[in-house]
Design a protein around this nucleic acid. Structure first.
Lengths: 155, 155
DNA sequence: GTTACTGCAAAGTGTTTGCAAATCC
DNA sequence: GGATTTGCAAACACTTTGCAGTAAC
């Protein structure tokens, strides 16, 4: 299944895919995959573009390259994308362990969690429907402990 | 003619929301919610527009109206939307019984499911983090059986 | 009669593509 | 040196908005 590969291993895999397809290993591609690896964020293409532009100004990266690289990586199954509501598409490395979010509707607190029972069950559900599972998104909504206690009026 | 109480109830709710907000009940809005009710499909705005145009040519409906009505309905929580890949947003009536979605990343197929093990576990997870659960959303992403078989590279 | 709604077209978004110059192998 | 990749800008696809006429209340 999904292993948590070290960065070097991820990079090697990336280089291998490029080599096998007669593609080239460029600074832009290196920086993009490194950024995805080093961050826990789910990046939109726009955000990723702005971040790389700021961190590596000498590269003078273009947003078209970010889109092209993300699409390339997604086709190679090295990144996955998911959509959060209206916020558009977000990308993350396929090799990272997945986590879900629990969101407090009063104060906006976000708690990350990972649950083996749910993860396992998802595989079962997918199998029952003939799907090959590549990812998932689960968000729980509720009221956090703090907000429950101090029944403060929220937004 | 067979009476359909459920539809009448949905329509009443819709009319009530309109009334409460000083909005009007138009033929276009009527036809749109009726179409969503009568179909099991998840409609993209485009598809919904084409369908209504074909079924009710005398209305000469515009796509802007479809978008505006869907947004209105979503704000009123009468429809929900899910988005995936590059294929845009899909809408369905919110009054359908609770279910989650499994989405094929290649062809956009949406399969609905409901799973008691996951539902129960969610309550447990919330409790472990001191949350009082009020709702959730879960989407599984993968490759459907049909797309796995025809593993042809292409758009 | 007043107000909201509609279709149309134009304007916004976000994403992709064509091209000449730059970079990698 | 030859091929791919890049940034740029233009093109594209999807969604929203401004407007003047129309329909609902």
């Amino acid at each position: 299944m999904i292993e948590n590969l070290e960065y070097d291993a991820i990079l090697e895999q990336f280089k291998r895919i490029l080599r096998e397809n007669g593609l080239k290993y460029t600074k832009q591609r290196e920086v993009l995959i490194k950024t995805l690896y080093n961050s826990d964020e789910h990046f939109t293409p726009e955000k990723l573009y702005l971040y790389i532009k700021e961190q590596y100004p000498e590269l003078n990266v273009g947003i078209a390259t970010v889109y092209r690289t993300l699409n390339l990586l997604e086709e190679s199954e090295m990144v996955t994308s998911i959509s959060f509501g209206t916020q558009g598409k977000k990308f993350e490395l396929a090799t990272k362990p997945h986590h879900d979010h629990m969101i407090c509707k009063k104060c906006g607190l976000i708690v990350e969690f990972e649950d083996q029972i749910v993860e396992k069950r998802q595989l079962g559900i997918a199998k029952e429907h003939g799907f090959k599972l590549t990812g998932h998104m689960m968000q729980l909504y509720g009221i956090c402990e703090s907000c429950s206690k101090n029944n403060i009026k929220g937004r």
